[in-house]
Nucleic acid binder design. Structure first.
Lengths: 192, 192
DNA sequence: CGAACGCTTGACTTCTATCAACAGGTGTGG
DNA sequence: CCACACCTGTTGATAGAAGTCAAGCGTTCG
């Protein structure tokens, strides 16, 4: 969809499907920053800072994405103050989430981070899934590892651990949470 | 200055001095998210998302801080659209920086991260120091470690390494960068 | 059918956190 | 003024966590 380093000429709005936003790290590894689904924007940070894209966006599921040219997007913001307010709240929330992840990566160990990642992903899927059946996280092991910030093998081992502890059930490219509070406990998520 | 978990009733604007914003991680460790100096805001994310503070703010140097009550702050934003635009660009930049740190923590090793942290801190100090002499990073080893996301002992060892390699020179609670491009190389910062 | 890919498990290595001890400086109280 | 405690910075030794390398298995796809 877009590439790191290229100049943004607008923002993308996801109508349907699933897109992953990731960054390149040291050596060949990548870090998935977030998933974007129906109703989410992508590329707005780069437009708002007048900088280049710092990340890659790639479609995970078949998606429908519409493109809003930069000047149109900025015009919408000047004309509609409540839209601006909402967007600012949205970005602030993303900032808070991102800072939380910085703390997690710096102070928690992989096992706790995987539990936390699963919970966060479940929340994401269920927010895109309003009122339907229980949400299933459908990512490959490698994608999950890139999200949690670890190696795929390590992610596999811990998932298999969680499965044996009846915390989750897994299929190929799918994970469902069975025992939410068990994961919460591992993730140390008493708060927030 | 403010505490995690408390309800924000306004934002803080630093006129003078230096404030560190940090979060509590797993066990007793803390992670310094950012420093704030003259002209910087603190606590705006929490006000804009209508949530609680997720971090702590603590004065590092003697500071002058002014307090802007929430409703006043929001009123300023509705009345001055260019202020809103500037703030949104600012928050977007913070988001991009935070995402960069997520990637660093997930994919780089400590040595690279310390180099990167030193460069980022130098940029911060020099931006607060316009046109004056070469900027000096004045943080304790423990604070630097909490910023880079590592243990104080590890930070000490790597700093001592860098000193021997004539990349930096250190004093108590002060670090100056001697060979910037050497650090850049270690930090893998060919881009951005 | 063979090749390629994702997932899984095992063995090993390496990085980094932790524990412990010590030096130097600072402040405090006798 | 000295002695003591305390804190920061430093270095060494060790243990543990997680990354890497390697091999095997089941699927899918050409």
């Amino acid at each position: 969809m877009y590439l790191e380093g290229s100049r943004p000429t607008g923002v993308y709005c996801i109508n349907e499907g699933l897109v992953k936003i990731y960054r390149a790290g040291s050596d060949g590894r990548v870090q998935i920053m977030k998933l974007a689904g129906p109703g989410d924007l992508a590329g707005h940070e780069a437009v708002l800072t007048e900088g280049n894209y710092k990340s890659f966006a790639e479609v995970v599921e078949t998606s429908m994405v519409c493109y809003i040219p930069k000047n149109h997007f900025l015009k919408m913001l000047t004309e509609n103050h409540s839209l601006t307010t909402a967007l600012m709240a949205q970005i602030s929330q993303e900032l808070i989430d991102s800072e939380k992840r910085v703390t997690s990566l710096a102070t928690m160990q992989v096992r706790e981070r995987i539990a936390e990642s699963l919970l966060a992903l479940q929340e994401f899927y269920s927010s895109k899934n309003k009122g339907k059946q229980a949400p299933v996280i459908s990512l490959s092991r490698e994608e999950l590892a890139a999200f949690a910030g670890t190696a795929p093998e390590t992610a596999v081992r811990i998932l298999s651990d969680f499965r044996q502890g009846k915390l989750i059930s897994v299929g190929k490219r799918s994970i469902s949470i069975v025992n939410r509070s068990g994961l919460l406990e591992i993730a140390n998520r008493y708060q927030s």
